[in-house]
């Protein structure tokens, strides 16, 4: 009788163990997927495309970027200290991407677009 109880106890422990290990791995899988999912890639594409547009722009040019598009929703575009920061689907930009234009660049929100002006 005692032998049977001991076996059940071990099985219970192993089950708890497997569930906990599974949970830990699941947390890490989701964290890794979050890092590599589409939002990060969309953010990188937008930041780099905007930086290239600014670099190639001449003084007096303006370009508009739709807030909602097939690639997702752009919550915010910031331009500060020579860098472009884009917030896509609430994923806040950590380090942005630098541009090298000699002109003064500003961004403003206008209806369903962000307007970037190069002056």
């Amino acid at each position: 009788m005692y032998y049977c109880d001991k076996k059940g106890e071990i099985l219970n422990q192993v089950l708890v163990h497997i569930v906990l290990v599974g949970l830990i791995f699941a947390i890490f899988v989701f964290a890794t997927a979050g890092r590599m999912n589409g939002r990060g890639v969309k953010q990188q594409v937008l930041e780099k495309e905007i930086a290239l547009l600014i670099d190639a722009a001449e003084a007096g040019m303006e370009f508009g970027i739709q807030k909602a598009m097939i690639n997702g929703v752009i919550n915010n575009i910031e331009i500060k200290e020579g860098r472009v920061y884009v917030t896509v689907e609430r994923l806040v930009a950590a380090k942005g991407y630098p541009y090298f234009s000699k002109y003064s660049v500003s961004v403003r929100s206008e209806g369903n677009k962000f307007i970037i002006s190069v002056r």
Partner: peptide
């Protein structure tokens, strides 16, 4: 997962 996230990070 730390190492795999570094290697699989997408760089444009």
């Amino acid at each position: 997962f730390g190492i795999s996230s570094i290697f699989y990070a997408y760089e444009i």
